[in-house]
Design a protein around this nucleic acid. Structure first.
Lengths: 145, 145
DNA sequence: GCGATTAGTTATCTCTCATAACTATTTTCT
DNA sequence: AGAAAATAGTTATGAGAGATAACTAATCGC
């Protein structure tokens, strides 16, 4: 027996949470076989597209605090997906690059992610899917301004 | 220096996560003064609109597992916002109701939430805001659907 | 009445997100 | 050049979300 959610289902915040959990659950079914979370995928993607970037740079661009990024990047280093080498130009900074294994896995993950996107597009229709981007980006920007 | 997010900002899953965090951060600025999280607000709202409902019912309608709901509802009981009384018709079940204090607080929270919604509507425009509901509900339904 | 559900709980575990405090290195500014 | 401020990364810590497994007590289906 479903209860009345009252004003809740008029709140975009509530709908965003429910939608996000459902969408993440869907993409995780594909990633789980590789032991990768959506957050890991995002990190690998950014490192792959910005080889040599520093930890704080990668973290910040994903909206992760550098302090919380430490255990995540360490896990991926220990798994042999990411290499952390001291930056030659700044001795404080660690340059992040994908290992060969990381590259291979990322390519595979991109295919998995694309299958997921296609699935979501199928649920909404291509126009509705595309139409989501702009307002979501606008909402995402309200914090950091 | 912002890094290239690559295919990430084409993925609705990623945008949903970023948008959700930003929207929650906004609403939490209003709720924080009351020591209430968005999840707490959702629970109070459902109990308020379905007085006497059981724990598992409330949890399920919000997509929370009953096992994870226990500490949350206990916190709210200890704060005196919610009363848990044994159901007269089913001795396994706990009837949840708002206390007078819970009612008062919920009314206040509804006003705060409405201010937040108005703010989000201002960011997106009323049409774009309203247009978000349908696709988000559709995405939220893909799991249990 | 007996087996299968259901309501609620406890106990774990992992991951996320946040804050505070610290080291070591640049940068900035005078 | 040298002191002060900012930056890169780390550790420690804590609350909270979400998941799973195993359990008790009560109700339901037949």
């Amino acid at each position: 027996m479903a209860l009345d959610l009252g004003p809740l289902d008029g709140h975009v915040g509530y709908l965003l949470r429910r939608a996000q959990l459902a969408v993440f659950a869907d993409i995780m079914t594909g990633f789980a076989a590789h032991g990768i979370s959506p957050a890991d995928y995002a990190v690998l993607t950014v490192i792959g597209g910005n080889s040599g970037a520093g930890q704080s740079q990668v973290a910040e661009s994903l909206g992760i605090q550098k302090t919380n990024f430490v255990p995540q990047i360490r896990r991926m280093e220990e798994r042999g997906l990411v290499a952390r080498t001291p930056s030659p130009t700044d001795r404080r900074s660690m340059s992040l690059t994908l290992t060969a294994e990381g590259e291979t896995l990322l390519a595979e993950l991109h295919r998995t992610a694309q299958a997921h996107v296609d699935r979501m597009r199928g649920h909404l229709g291509p126009e509705a899917y595309a139409a989501l981007r702009e307002p979501l980006m606008r909402l995402a920007a309200i914090g950091p301004g």
